[in-house]
Design a protein around this nucleic acid. Structure first.
Length: 221
DNA sequence: ACCCAGGTGGCCC
DNA sequence: GGGCCACATGGG
């Protein structure tokens, strides 16, 4: 038990391989810089990426896509620039605050990126507006250190694949990191592949035709 | 007119 | 430690 195997003895590594062979490399995270990835990770909370792209374009158009520029930007102005991402008042306040904390604790964004991943996770999780998923997204895609990102799709897909349903975030994260040998490239791909699978086939109301996991799936969960 | 999206925090019990 | 709610835009 707790080994990320389903009844047919398929492991999480089998899912990874099936998805990779079906969808190919996803090349996540889309973004021109590590700072842009951090911004995107916060803006995309419970929001479609399309809406976040508009905000990112907006920031770039105004030459605001940098640590120092957002740090010094008025919160109300920031809120208007990122409006399309939804929850813009919250996100503006929290994003500014996170940058402020990085500045005061680490001096610069570059120095923050160099810190050890356990310290980074502890720091990120202590920030308002950064939960586990966002913290691990930043560690994996911006800092490029091993961390598996568990989102709502991951829980759903793992349940349908027949893994234990009583797994919590940390357990799934630790096990997947173990199965993928802490390989950053694979961890990046895996989360992206699960999102792609979910978007294409594995919504709350599943569309299972041609789904590569269909033979292994328990649809009624 | 609903329902959902690459969540999080606060409050209740 | 779970169940609800606010936060808000934009697309199906």
């Amino acid at each position: 038990m707790n080994s990320l195997k389903n009844k047919n003895n398929y492991t999480v590594l089998d899912i990874y391989n099936i998805l990779y062979n079906s969808f190919g490399p996803q090349g996540w995270w889309p973004g021109e810089s590590k700072f842009e990835i951090l911004v995107g990770a916060i803006l995309t909370q419970n929001t479609t990426w399309k809406n976040v792209e508009k905000s990112i374009t907006n920031l770039k158009k105004r030459n605001l896509m940098s640590f120092e520029m957002i740090l010094n930007l008025d919160e109300k102005d920031l809120a208007m620039v990122i409006k399309s991402s939804g929850f813009y008042n919250q996100k503006a306040m929290r994003l500014k605050n996170i940058l402020l904390e990085i500045k005061s604790k680490y001096g610069s964004f570059e120095d923050f990126l160099k810190i050890e991943k356990d310290d980074a996770r502890k720091f990120l999780l202590s920030q308002k507006g950064i939960g586990k998923e966002t913290a691990d997204s930043i560690i994996l895609y911006a800092m490029e250190k091993p961390a598996f990102v568990v989102d709502a799709y991951t829980f759903r897909i793992f349940k349908r694949f027949g893994f234990n349903t009583d797994m919590d975030y940390e357990l799934i994260k630790n096990k997947v990191e173990e199965y993928l040998n802490g390989d950053v490239k694979k961890l990046k791909e895996f989360h992206a592949l699960l999102v792609e699978l979910a978007k294409t086939y594995c919504k709350k109301v599943p569309k299972c035709d041609n789904c590569p996991l269909e033979p292994f799936c328990e649809k009624n969960v």
